[in-house]
Design a protein around this nucleic acid. Structure first.
Lengths: 193, 193
DNA sequence: GTACTCTTATATCTGGTAGACATATCTCCG
DNA sequence: CGGAGATATGTCTACCAGATATAAGAGTAC
């Protein structure tokens, strides 16, 4: 059985409106992008499974060979069950922190570059979320939008936290660099001088 | 070739001190746990690859059949290269936000439970990080510890952001519940009343 | 002193996933 | 009206995570 969380995302997307597999990927990428991701490799097999189980219905698409999927009543009931399941924790993987942890090998300046990049990304995300926030306010789905705004708010809190941490960290790294904890000698110098 | 980030984590761990595959998994789980994870399925094959390439050296372990791995000079140089690579963004997957996004189907009370759980987890993480912080201060690796503290600080910022967001969100959900946006009707009621 | 069990360490194996790739349909311009 | 590029759709493969099997050592009772 495919992961329950992917099924949740797929059924949830169809609970907003019927759509094709490709459209679903786009919707997930643009709207859920800051906290979720699915790839074709999951979406299509999952839709096929759900069709087998009678939880979604396949309809004609606009193009030959394409299909639009819609939620059946059974599918809607199943979605409620899935949403009530406890969330599965996903293993964290933060490439910036991994590099920073071994920062002594890399040196303070390179670490600072890394942190500045992360800060920039957070700023851009904050701007993107602000745009989404106004979009959501102007869009029709009045019953859903309060919940959508909660997820946007989560992204904003996280981004602001990243920015605050980055500023603190840059200050710390500056003093580290000044004190001459300059990391390991660069490759030009010998191991045994 | 196995993911460069896994190689980075493995070589980085050996840069602290030589260790066995099992010890490495433990070290990654306990020390890097709040921002990284690796499983045996990656660690052992990666170690074998790195040995082939002469980047690590296999030594005798304490038990029959066990091996201790140590960084070679070439391995240390390779680690520097890997750390300089730009971090790979990992696709986000936040189960709590996924459920909250479809919160209309689930109802405000169940959503509040979810958010309270997330808040509890963040509180516990904050406590754990505080413990790690004092540990790090008292441990020998003086050159590494400034960098380790930076990663701990990142975790603390993130956890505090989660707590602040949770408090805001719980207030919002309370008003939603009061206003009677009670989600979809429970399964007992009919679709067309 | 010896045999048995329980815990801990190590390695492999399987299902699931991400993203590259192949294919087909539209649209716009000549 | 025909063709080329853009866009939409679906499949395939290599890789990864975690569960599971296997083996060693320590402790305990007789």
């Amino acid at each position: 059985m495919r992961s329950r969380q992917t099924r949740t995302a797929v059924l949830g997307a169809l609970s907003i409106q019927p759509m094709t597999g490709y459209a679903m990927r786009e919707a997930i990428r643009t709207t859920l992008g800051h906290f979720w991701s699915e790839s074709f490799g999951q979406i299509y097999p999952t839709l096929a499974e759900l069709e087998q189980e009678g939880l979604v219905e396949r309809g004609e698409g606009t193009r030959t060979g394409s299909s639009t999927f819609a939620l059946t009543p059974a599918g809607r009931a199943h979605l409620r069950t899935l949403l009530a399941d406890p969330p599965q924790p996903d293993p964290p993987r933060n490439g910036v922190l991994l590099r920073l942890f071994f920062g002594r090998v890399l040196g303070p300046e390179a670490c600072a570059d890394l942190v500045r990049d992360a800060r920039d990304r957070a700023e851009r995300q904050l701007a993107g979320l602000a745009a989404e926030r106004t979009d959501t306010d102007h869009t029709a789905h009045a019953d859903d939008s309060p919940y959508w705004l909660l997820t946007i708010s989560a992204g904003e809190h996280a981004a602001r936290a990243t920015i605050a941490w980055a500023d603190e960290t840059l200050a710390t790294l500056a003093t580290l660099a000044a004190e001459g904890h300059g990391g390991e000698p660069p490759t030009s110098s010998k191991e045994t001088p």
